[in-house]
Amino acid sequence: MSDSPILKVRGVSKFFGGLTALNNVDFWVNAGEVVALLGDNGAGKSTLIKCISGVYRPDHGQITFNGHDITGQAPMAIRSLGIETIYQDLALAENLDVGANVFLGKEKKKRLLGLIPVTDDDYMRAEAAKALQKLDIHIPSLRQKLVNLSGGQRQAVAIARAIYWNARLIIMDEPTAALGVPEQRKVLEVIRTLRDQGIPIILISHTMQDVMDVADRMVVMLRGRVAANVPRAEATVDLLVKHIIGAGEMS
């Protein structure tokens, strides 16, 4: 933790009517670090993530990214700064191929006969292949529609898209939920590959094994507060579960 954090959340609170969803939360992510965000349903994980990605505007506090104040900025602005959130539904067009999905909404064009702009599908497929290669992901045919790929492969495509467009912090919401065991392992490998390439990750997960496998640090939330901040070396499943259910407060 020698480097200064790339993302800093300081004293953030968020209220919904009378409900306090976040209460004076401090949270940070260092460069090249995988931070697991844990907590029971309603503990405030999602609210915190949505404040970072710009979906919600915090009522108090400040969020900075690479030294820029991003508090309350629009989701698109925050994405263009390099914070990419991959939700469980992945936001892919499963009826199209990998190239089309990596370039979704930002299609590469070329001019036919020097005149008419058309989509450059070969270029997009080749670039998508490179992006997947960087993540050490193999997909049998790049011309395949996503609907024919496995859940882990689709997850990889969503990550590859984020990386391709220069994501500098990736937030992943339950990336291994709804995947088979070999697929889960593959996604965890991708997360490690990303970290080795220096891209920090916030990982929301309910699966203790995943968290123990890949996270460098675990942040546990409880009733809108940060209840614990546990480095990997000190973490055990027991300890984390205690914090999650609130038994850690008493001990």
Partner: peptide, 24 residues
Amino acid sequence: GRTQFGRHTYVIGGNEDAAIRAGI
């Protein structure tokens, strides 16, 4: 079949939510 407009038509038909989030 060949233009960005056509591609976006397929994206919307495949996943309207993804299209919106992709800025279409």
